[in-house]
Nucleic acid binder design. Structure first.
Length: 325
DNA sequence: TTAAGACCTGAAGT
DNA sequence: AACTTCAGGTCTT
């Protein structure tokens, strides 16, 4: 069985696997002790996922879609390393999915030094953004509206179990997140029975759009940030906030700042001058506030390239600090 | 272009 | 115990 170990002291800024995978940015991992989100792990639990099962578009863009085999993968953090085991050589996947090459000290060295950002960074040093596959991320965040983190996770797990490919690994069965084709074959009433509520038709229609080739979330990659966000709102059930989540967690737009209820609270209490009354302008303002001072590198005088990183720390801090005390 | 209401559901709070 | 509120919003009118 392919395994590997990545020394933590080779990762700039280290890593906090628990914060990375349980901060509500990725819904594609499952903690092996089954107690995800309930409490912080008291040991060094494995987190499992299935990779490679998504349908890829050929790199030349001409020949539609080509399914790959689904492979199981699990990772855990020990005192010295990130260890992984898989049905395939997953070293590159682990580095990519967990953004292990991100230089956290560099990202935060000159981040805004206000109280909220400082507290958020101290609260979960080592938290890394994830780099998840676009289609599962698209569906997961359509499901996320008006839902708690734990329920979003259970909805995604249910979709995988009901519609995704099975993979055997270590005497257990894991399920890949369904491909667009597999999910498009589901019906609205099925998804309602699975507890998706009014999101059910959104999920079906969006899956159909991707399965038919009408649109793919990857199409947004490469566009300027705000154009990419606009592009993603073509999908049913995707507004500005969900689009920002997709951009940040799966398309590498680290400047994207999803404006959710928690960040809106932060705006009210800490950055009232950033409230511009609408998403687009408030987003620009808070992105600038989460950016770093530069010598006039942009029209705002700030470099917001990593504003989304700051957002994820602040979100995680505000959402979980009370329970942590 | 902006602004209320509706919307599934179940856990958590009175 | 019944009832209200709320949760990483979006769509419709």
């Amino acid at each position: 069985m392919p395994t590997g170990s990545i020394p933590i002291d080779t990762l700039p800024g280290g890593i906090d696997l628990y914060a990375t995978l349980e901060s509500g940015q990725s819904y594609l991992w499952r903690r092996e002790d089954g107690r995800m989100y309930e409490d912080a792990p008291d040991g060094q639990p494995w987190y499992c996922t299935v990779i490679g099962g998504e349908t890829l578009r050929d790199s030349d863009g001409t020949s539609g879609q080509r399914p790959r085999d689904a492979e199981a993968l699990r990772v855990r953090q020990t005192d010295e390393a990130i260890e992984w085991e898989s049905t395939t050589d997953a070293e590159t996947a682990v580095r990519t999915l967990l953004r292990l090459d991100d230089d956290l000290p560099e990202i935060f060295e000159s981040a805004p030094d206000d109280d909220l950002v400082e507290a958020s960074y101290d609260y979960a040093r080592g938290l890394r953004l994830v780099d998840d596959p676009p289609f599962p991320t698209l569906i997961a965040f359509i499901c996320s509206q008006q839902m708690r983190v734990a329920r979003i996770h259970s909805m995604v797990s249910t979709l995988a179990r009901e519609y995704g490919d099975a993979v055997e690994f270590r005497d257990r069965t894991y399920h890949a997140f369904p491909t667009p084709d597999q999910l498009a074959a589901a019906t609205e009433s099925e998804l309602r029975e699975l507890g998706l509520g009014y999101r059910a038709p959104y999920v079906v229609r969006t899956a159909e759009m991707v399965a038919s080739g009408e649109a793919h979330p990857r199409d947004a990659a490469g566009l300027p940030y705000e154009d990419a966000r606009e592009e993603l709102t073509r999908f049913v059930g995707v507004g500005d906030k969900v689009a920002d989540c997709i951009l940040l967690f799966s398309l590498g737009y680290l400047e994207a700042v999803p404006l959710d209820t928690w960040i809106k609270t932060a705006v009210e209490e800490y950055y009232p001058e950033c409230d511009r009354g609408n998403y687009r302008e408030t987003s620009r303002a808070i992105r600038s506030a989460f950016g770093v001072e530069t010598d006039g590198a942009s029209d705002t005088g700030r470099d917001d390239a990593y504003a989304g990183y700051v957002q994820t720390y602040v979100f995680h801090y505000l959402r979980t600090r009370d329970a942590a005390e």
